[in-house]
Design a binder for these strands. Structure first.
Lengths: 246, 246
DNA sequence: GAGTGGTCTAGACCACAGT
DNA sequence: CTGTGGTCTAGACCACTCG
């Protein structure tokens, strides 16, 4: 049951996070095999020299990730699974660079325009209010992956002089003090138009995965509306759902 | 700031859940408008006569749902958004009945077969092990919506004599003591085959949203593998992402 | 400086599952 | 019955943001 868990109280990293990280790597690394009982918060807490709520906080984080399952009166067990990709909360951010897929970006449109009705509604701003309009095409391995159209209220950020071919949009926003926190996405599918298909290097009417997103920053403001069209043959979206009693 | 919050200590519903529910309806109902500061855990706790961790637990649940945003040193604020629906691990059947969309189901295939290689891999069972194979077509408003193919290890549940045209699959599993807890999904798109398109009442090669899912029960076992093909013109998948520091 | 959320402790009692 | 997780308390100190 015990895998070399050691906590560093002098570290700036919170104890529960250290614990969660070490348990996670024990699971993903195979030291804790599926079905293993992890249990007894109380004993774990004592053996680690921390309080029970701290252990609990770490465990609950892994439950939320879908790695552990707990039942009252029974215990906590490692989920039975060929553990796949981690969850995509950071699909918010530039997770392609993290995967060494060599993304490159072509900026097709970068302009400031009065907000069309649909965009104004999504951003929660008055119609005709100036918004930045972006149309970018992203490649990985020199093959088109996604056509990205984005709108940002103009007063939120100044993108003049920013080269979006070399700087991710979210990175540029962060540099302007805008920190993305919450995104609501709708995921659907449709056939690409002739033009879209062609830009993405696909035959006409090819199936596309379409992700429409509204993003809020750390103050709760809506700061971005985007519609991203992925080549269906090159992209899938992964989610883990957990049934937390509500 | 204060909306008639009242807690019932004699209720079996936990305090933090009562709190979260009341705050959520205050937000969704407009009593707490976007941008409103909710803050001060300590004051809230005192005014409600509960401890700070209890208030905190309620607030964090709403942060997780994307309704609140918090910043250290600043406070907790209501997110600026036309709030949409959350996403949980409910079966599609439950979703649709709840929305009065009159789902009906045709069972096209219901049989027990030796697991093909791909299915065995997904379910984590030996090849050739008996599995229940289901193929169902679901309609809403008398229009085809989704073609559902599912596999379940045969020893997990006995579906003999269960009419899946009137009983949802998850409902049938629950009745057999199988409680679904965690699901990993991959969402993609592709053109339907001629047969798939035809069954779903669509022109050939129509775009389809495809959801592939592996589901675990409360003990962590893999209990179901499913591939669901949605008509892209009738279905979208909604997700809320929250950037929790990890 | 004052005010906020972030972390942590050391207890307590209850609800539920197994024997 | 015992053992598990689920909930709750009443404090504490720290880290961060603001004026």
């Amino acid at each position: 049951m015990e895998m070399g868990l050691d906590l560093d109280r002098s570290s700036p990293v919170p104890l529960y996070r250290q614990l969660a990280a070490q348990m996670e790597s024990a699971i993903r690394g195979g030291a804790l095999t599926p079905g293993t009982e992890l249990g007894n918060e109380a004993r774990l807490a004592e053996s680690l020299g921390v309080s029970r709520p701290t252990v609990r906080q770490a465990i609950l984080a892994l439950v939320e990730k879908g790695l552990l399952v707990r039942r009252r009166g029974i215990g906590t067990h490692v989920v039975d699974a060929p553990v796949v990709q981690p969850l995509t909360l950071t699909s918010l951010f530039d997770d392609l660079t993290a995967k060494n897929q060599l993304p490159t970006t072509r900026v097709l449109v970068q302009e400031t325009v009065p907000a069309p009705e649909e965009v104004a509604a999504a951003l929660g701003v008055p119609v005709e209010q100036p918004v930045i309009h972006l149309l970018r095409l992203r490649y990985t391995d020199n093959t088109p992956l996604v056509l990205m159209e984005n709108y940002i209220p103009a007063q939120i950020v100044d993108l003049e002089g920013i080269n979006l071919a070399t700087t991710g949009l979210y990175q540029a926003l962060r540099a302007n003090g805008v920190f993305l926190k919450v995104a609501r996405q709708r995921i659907g599918a449709r056939a690409g138009t002739d033009e879209e298909s062609q830009v993405l290097g696909q035959p006409p009417h090819s199936p596309m995965l379409i992700i429409e997103r509204v993003t809020h920053d750390s103050s709760g403001r809506i700061v971005e509306y985007g519609v991203h069209l992925y080549r269906a043959d090159r992209y899938q979206y992964a989610v883990t759902l957990v049934d937390r009693p509500s």
